[in-house]
Write a protein that binds this DNA or RNA. Structure first.
Lengths: 196, 196
DNA sequence: TACTATACATACAGGTTTGTATAGTACCAA
DNA sequence: TTGGTACTATACAAACCTGTATGTATAGTA
């Protein structure tokens, strides 16, 4: 029937378009609230193509989470590239979260939101989400170790809890002030365990 | 056709059964994932009765959030009834959260989960959720004031962020350890702002 | 006795969901 | 020129969704 339009040079592949569209809609509207029909339509792709690439909606959800994880680390690393001391890293981490919340429609952590929607305990997404969060905690622990904390794992965990709490609260309150407050608390927790 | 079975003495009304069932399923499976058909069936009630009482699914969601808020405060107040000093209140607050996470299937904060599912910004649920969280913050601020903190609002907010972060993290990790860690951090944040 | 409230049963409308089946088209490389 | 890849278009199955229409039965109250 209609033509399979030949993809011109700078154009993204169908798979790329599907994944980008899905990531956007899954985050902004939620996973259950976003149907594959809508994704296919917005990506200017047929449902057949979508299923050929991702197998199922759950497969697309997993791919979305993997892609989001990659994007997250790329942006985060770039944000922290100029830091030198551990204190600077720590502060900039909270600033990075705040900047992220200011850019575009903020709906909290996409991984946490996905986890609450994926009620099937064996969904492949849960492993990706867990890995993402574990990675952040390792990152923070490296800061704490570098800062010479006596118990780096514990301080890192406390920073992590502040970041998670600030993310949820900033989303609910439509404000970035919680990140500022969390940063303040994190700095106060740093010397107390360590070099007092 | 079949009888409208007369409710015997100790038996709950249809409305009560609907609300209890909905609260259970909305929390355990999520709001979008729970259909009104399922709720009616599990509550041993017809869909017509459900709609007569709550008007719409959104109406039922709002009623569920209101009821959950009431239950929450009742349990919380009871848990903190025996406390006398502000420090004791603070510690017991974190213990109460931990105990809550241990009882039954823990899926994080039902209000936060609901907020991420209710993508319509004008859904009546959002006001209830916001009120619930504001109430907790006020409670914490009262502790901080009683403890003689110089900046009670700010310390209370930091405790609040720790509680929120611990709740999300405990849910994702299927562990209550985050509450223990959060309590530890909260206590370290108490004297630092205040009576140092 | 008459009225009202509450709940029942059944059926359906109209839409959306995920996923598949079938057939046709455009391009590239051997 | 032939075959493979990547895609399009349309149509459908089967289940589920929210919400309503219609009629019936029971119990308390005036």
């Amino acid at each position: 029937m209609a033509a399979a339009r030949r993809r011109t040079d700078g154009e993204r592949s169908a798979a790329d378009r599907i994944l980008a569209t899905a990531s956007e809609l899954f985050y902004e509207r939620g996973i259950r609230a976003t149907g594959v029909n809508t994704i296919a339509e917005r990506a200017a792709v047929t449902k057949v193509t979508l299923y050929a690439h991702f197998g199922s909606k759950d497969g697309l959800v997993a791919a979305h989470l993997r892609a989001r994880d990659q994007r997250w680390w790329a942006e985060f690393d770039e944000y922290l590239a100029s830091c030198t001391t551990a204190e600077e890293w720590l502060e900039t981490t909270f600033d990075a979260y705040q900047a992220w919340a200011l850019a575009g429609e903020f709906r909290g952590c996409g991984f946490v939101n996905a986890a609450t929607e994926l009620t099937a305990a064996d969904h492949p997404g849960h492993a990706i989400i867990g890995g993402h969060k574990a990675g952040i905690r390792r990152y923070l622990e490296a800061f704490a170790t570098e800062a010479g904390c006596a118990h780096p794992a514990e301080v890192a965990e406390e920073w992590f809890l502040l970041l998670e709490g600030a993310t949820v609260t900033a989303s609910l309150r439509h404000s970035t002030e919680p990140f500022h407050r969390a940063r303040h608390a994190a700095l106060r927790l740093l010397p107390a365990t360590n070099r007092a």
